[in-house]
Simulated scan of single mutants.
Amino acid sequence: MVKVVELRGVKKSFSKFQALNGVSFTVNKGEVVGFIGPNGAGKSTTIRTLLGILKRDEGEAKIFNMDVWKDSIEIHKRISYVPGDVSLWGSLTGGEIIDLFMELHGGGDKKKRDYLIKRFELDPKKKAKSYSKGNRQKVGLIAALSVDSDLYIFDEPTSGLDPLMEAVFQDEVEKIKVAGKSILLSSHILSEVERLADRVVIIRKGEIVESGTLDELRHLTRTTITLETEQNVNEIAHIEGVHDFKQIDPRQAIFSIDVDYFNAVLTAATRLGVKKLESIPPSLEDLFMRHYEN
């Protein structure tokens, strides 16, 4: 695996407040990494450190094997970035701003720009000062996606967009993922991360609390089971690892189970005569809330 982004033990404090405390993770070539956490967890501070906007206090932070602080100018030639609140020049039109961003980056694909303007349903002739927050985000997204970058960094990119436009964004991200590009996606929309990300990194209070693929992390939360048996299903409630047991009628129940005790439930269910068994794996939201609630 070629490491495009690499952070090792990164620390950053503002006066007495420790914003980042030993943050470490990687983004590999052709990989989408979902970067999630509650507000104030350190997501934007991490991203601003990667962009060379903030200087870290300790640790290593590299993009394309170059130091994000010392080599930021070279790094920026190969990345696209969209913040959660895009600021624009009010006297320019959306189209003029997109072209300016593309020119600053070093060109871009005008056919793709026109295609994206149509897909995101943006009126490029309007002055930016008349744009809503959602339309400002569209300008940033169109400009970022119209240039050929090796790394795309999105920090709450769909903030202000309606669900239809969120779906358009997700489609376009999947296309650049197929093209072998690397993506760091920070988003509060967990279903978006769950759909797009190869790996997930969860940050809380400036520290990485979980990291891995969704399949690797699912063992940390419980699977929901719907079970119907030929005999009374009540005895399942007394098996170790079974939680939140709700008996619908004598032969049907819904409950959650720790993955390590799945075989015990299957053995007991088989003895009772299984008529229906549905298993729903834990979602990213379940995993996120587990840390958020704690």
Rank of each mutant, 00 (worst) to 15 (best):
V200K: 08
E121D: 13
P250S: 09
T223N: 08
V4C: 04
I73K: 13
A167L: 13
L227V: 08
R48H: 13
D109Y: 11
P250R: 11
I208Q: 01
D244P: 04
P163A: 07
S13I: 03
F64S: 00
L145F: 15
R56L: 13
E58L: 12
S256Q: 14
S146W: 06
A61R: 01
I239M: 02
R204D: 15
D85E: 14
S283I: 01
R218A: 07
I225N: 07
Y115W: 08
W69S: 07
S279V: 15
G84N: 01
F154K: 04
D260W: 01
P163S: 05
A268T: 14
K12E: 01
L196S: 02
D155L: 02
D244L: 11
V178P: 06
E194R: 02
S132L: 14
G180H: 02
R251C: 12
E235T: 14
P250I: 07
I257A: 00
Q137P: 06
R218H: 08
K126W: 10
E174Q: 13
L7F: 02
S132K: 10
L196P: 00
I36P: 00
T267H: 12
G134A: 02
I73T: 12
I208V: 12
K112D: 07
S80Y: 09
V242R: 00
I79K: 01
L284Y: 01
K205Y: 06
V2D: 15
S130V: 15
E96A: 01
K62N: 03
D99F: 00
K138Y: 03
N65D: 14
E210R: 13
E207D: 08
V68R: 00
A41L: 07
L185R: 03
K181P: 05
K126T: 10
K246R: 15
T26D: 14
V242H: 05
T49R: 06
T226S: 14
G40E: 09
H238G: 15
T93A: 05
M165Q: 11
K62D: 04
G34S: 10
V265L: 13
K11A: 09
T229C: 10
S191H: 06
V68A: 00
K138E: 06
L88H: 03
E174R: 15
S130R: 14
F17K: 07
F245H: 05
V274K: 06
S149H: 10
V168H: 03
E6I: 06
L185G: 06
V173S: 00
E240V: 12
S91M: 05
